[in-house]
């Protein structure tokens, strides 16, 4: 059976709720402690980006099965301002918020698959997947 969770991000508490939901599902799927930390951290980064730049949006977390492999898929959607230069935000150290600039490139390194669709003034959609080894 496929498990799905949605968390609305409209306050800082949403960030905490999203990563708790992610950790719970990751543990149920059978990820080890290191991968659980990777997945939780990635969710935290994605959720914070939504809160910081779009004010509100959603995190969808679901179990994934594909030709015998199992994994976890996280979808972060918002209809905020979008990202002007996608290549730029994937550079280490680039930040517009005064953070470490490790967020999105970090998420990419933490996960196995990373896809970003963004359009200025209409929103951003980021899909990431981690496969069970």
């Amino acid at each position: 059976m496929q498990v799905q969770t949605h968390v609305d991000i409209n306050s800082e508490w949403g960030i905490v709720a999203a990563r708790q939901a992610g950790r719970k599902l990751a543990r149920e799927i059978g990820f080890g402690s290191v991968d659980q930390a990777r997945i939780t951290t990635a969710i935290s980064e994605l959720a914070r980006n939504i809160y910081l730049y779009a004010n509100k949006g959603q995190i969808h977390i679901e179990e994934l099965t594909d030709s015998g492999r199992r994994g976890i898929k996280i979808l972060a959607i918002d209809d905020g301002p979008g990202i002007k230069d996608v290549r730029r935000v994937m550079e280490d150290g680039f930040t517009t918020s005064g953070g470490l600039g490790a967020g999105l490139p970090g998420v990419k390194r933490l996960m196995d698959d990373f896809k970003i669709d963004s359009e200025v003034n209409s929103g951003t959609k980021i899909t990431v997947i981690k496969w069970l080894r």
Binding site: S33, V34, A37, R38, D92, G106, R109
Partner: peptide, 14 residues
């Protein structure tokens, strides 16, 4: 700092 946390930080480049 727990091993899983340390590994995650390193992966992120922090």
């Amino acid at each position: 700092i727990q091993p899983a946390v340390a590994i995650t930080l390193i992966d992120m480049g922090i």
